[in-house]
């Protein structure tokens, strides 16, 4: 019986443990841990130098960046909506976030197919690996948002219990913040020569 309480993550511990707080800190530590990987790739990009920003579609880059930033706003709105019990707003905002996330991934895919450089040069290596790893996170974020959305439709979550949505939205913000560092490093930095 006690073990079942464990499994549901509900009343864990014998001294009044705040499960939500523990989950939150765990999630933040996970972000911290992941940001080291992204930070190392970012450092590697400058260590290898080589700059080809002219060969990138600047308009497309700006477009997908705006899209991703906007999706963080809709994701945030979804979280506050479920916190206030507004299920239909949460529903639509989750859907909007999913669509914008998919559009972002599509934009990256288009950039990959039209890029004028290959992975067999220093900048190409950095560009494809950094955007690739980030896009993997975007796609996994979309998958998690979709799961949260389906669970919402099936009647899960309430203003008292919406960790599934909160955690997913926080993850989405994290992916967004990573792009805030990657975008200038890949698209905007000029004049670094190897």
């Amino acid at each position: 019986m006690a073990l079942a309480a464990h499994a549901q993550g509900a009343e864990h511990g014998s001294h009044g443990l705040d499960r939500l707080r523990v989950n939150r800190v765990g999630l933040w530590l996970f972000f911290f841990s992941e940001s080291v990987i992204f930070g190392l790739l970012l450092s590697a990009r400058f260590f290898l130098e080589g700059i080809e920003a002219d060969h990138l579609d600047q308009l497309l880059g700006l477009g997908i960046t705006v899209l991703l930033l906007a999706s963080s706003i809709t994701a945030f709105t979804a979280e506050t909506a479920i916190a206030r019990g507004n299920r239909s707003l949460c529903n639509w905002m989750l859907l909007a976030t999913i669509v914008m996330g998919l559009l972002f991934a599509g934009g990256v895919a288009f950039e990959w197919s039209s890029a004028e450089f290959t992975k067999e040069e220093a900048f190409g290596t950095s560009f494809f690996v950094m955007t690739g790893l980030h896009a993997t996170h975007v796609i996994s974020g979309v998958a998690m948002l979709a799961m949260a959305w389906v669970m919402l439709l099936r009647g899960h979550f309430s203003p008292k219990s919406y960790w599934g949505i909160e955690g997913t939205v926080k993850y989405w913000h994290f992916v967004d913040v990573v792009w805030v560092f990657f975008y200038p490093a890949l698209y905007l930095v000029q004049g670094v020569h190897s």
Binding site: A44, F47, L48, E49, G50, K119, E120, E121, A122, F123, G124, T125, F128, V129, S194
Partner: peptide, 15 residues
């Protein structure tokens, strides 16, 4: 086929 560590193509084993 990336070139992180291939010095002949702009990579660097020291990385």
């Amino acid at each position: 086929g990336t070139v992180f560590f291939d010095a002949s193509r702009g990579g660097d084993p020291l990385l």
